[in-house]
Design a protein around this nucleic acid. Structure first.
Lengths: 133, 133
DNA sequence: TGAACACTTTAGAATCATTCCAATTCTAAT
DNA sequence: ATTAGAATTGGAATGATTCTAAAGTGTTCA
């Protein structure tokens, strides 16, 4: 399977990791994914999960997300989107653009800079936590 | 010293950590800061540097930045800005807005969501690395 | 078919960043 | 000066991730 120039041989483990991530909307961490994949393939090791995530993300099939100190999270949503992180309950949700929009245009980057990707993280309180508080 | 609602007693160590960070434009990590502060105060410990950074950032005097897996970086630039991260040389530079811009307006967040801060990271190749490559 | 080779997977060890802890020192206000 | 609360320390502990060496799984093609 090829995408964005890089190849990944889609071994059973890699496929499972990918499928588990595609079936998750909560931006799981590597250990979350490990736990979920283990239900189907009890023999898989955490090292393999890391390895699979590494290969899948360098092939562009998934994305790594870094929102806070601690564990990386992963995301199989390849559409243009940003991440909303609730500082109260910790949940991370995707938000999609209201209109086609290139954030890079709004910032003065030095001439000659090449952009490969942008990551926008919005931190705050989600509607549900805001109501309770 | 008070700002944004929180207080910090500005002890000598905290002041030094803050000054070192203010004098740095390279978004140093905690150990980078530890090394630099050690030149002036050889007895300071890494735990104290972490402690100072924690207090300074919860008081709103500095910001933590999470761009990639691994160490957190810190930044004393409180003006509205985004971070450009060169994937080739690893340098992180600030970019300031071309025009007043509220990223939150462009994304469909659920009604009732409260935003406390946004962090935009732009990854790519800096002009200097792009020329060499 | 099967020898050779490359890639994948594994468990556990190692590393690295960060946090915790208990003891000590400092500061500010009685 | 005394005392309480906060700051600082070094080292231990934790947690996430990466490394390593060995074993497994194909795949190629003579």
């Amino acid at each position: 399977m090829a995408l964005l120039g890089a190849d990944v041989r889609l071994t059973p483990h890699r496929r499972e990791v990918f499928e588990v991530l595609q079936g998750s909307t909560d931006h799981p961490t590597a250990t979350d994914i490990f736990t979920r994949v283990k239900d189907r393939s009890p023999s898989i090791s955490l090292a393999t999960v890391y390895n699979c995530l590494e290969h899948l993300s360098s092939a562009g099939l998934i994305k790594q997300v870094h929102l806070e100190r601690g564990q990386s999270r992963y995301c199989a949503n390849l559409h243009e989107h940003v991440h909303f992180h609730c500082e109260t309950c910790g949940k991370v949700t995707d938000a999609h653009p209201a209109a086609g929009f290139d954030p890079a245009k709004f910032w003065n980057l030095p001439a000659g800079t090449k952009i490969t990707r942008t990551e926008l993280a919005i931190h705050g309180t989600c509607a549900s936590c805001a109501t309770k508080g």
